[in-house]
Amino acid sequence: MEEFNKQLDDLKRNFTNPFTNPFTVPDEYFDTFPTKIQERILSGKREKNAFSRFITFAKPQLALGLMIAGFAFIAITIVEHTISNQTTLPVATGIHTRIVEVDASEFSEQHFIDVLLDDNKKPVQEKKKNAEHYINYLVDEDIDYGTLIDEL
């Protein structure tokens, strides 16, 4: 390896001597390179300046746009909040809807008993305590369902 290192050293003399460097560059490359770099930097600055000018020009419009978007967002949030509050009012809308939309005469006595005893029906759940009493009353008095609906 020592011998090879010496051989490499001999070779190196050729590389370090500018006249025998095997790599070359186009004529005047190093003379023109600094100018090329300056031009690239200036063109970058110009692009940056153009962007800054655009921002300066568009600033009021952007501010106005953001303001409108902000108001719209607040308005939508308020409306949504109001609507969601309305839907959670403690009114037994389920029962009312059912009575208005459905002809009660289509249902049997057993169906009414099932509905009144159903634990999953929230509005009915509150009246669960009295449910059995009502059922017994209806059966004992032999009241027809049309009368019951009219009373409700």
């Binding site: 490499l8 070779l11 050729n14 590389f15 095997p22 790599f23 070359t24 560059v25 186009p26």
Partner: peptide, 13 residues
């Protein structure tokens, strides 16, 4: 075109 090395320089590269 930008490499003008002789045979031994080419071999080293």
């Amino acid at each position: 075109q930008n490499f003008n090395g002789d045979e031994i320089q080419l071999k080293l590269q």
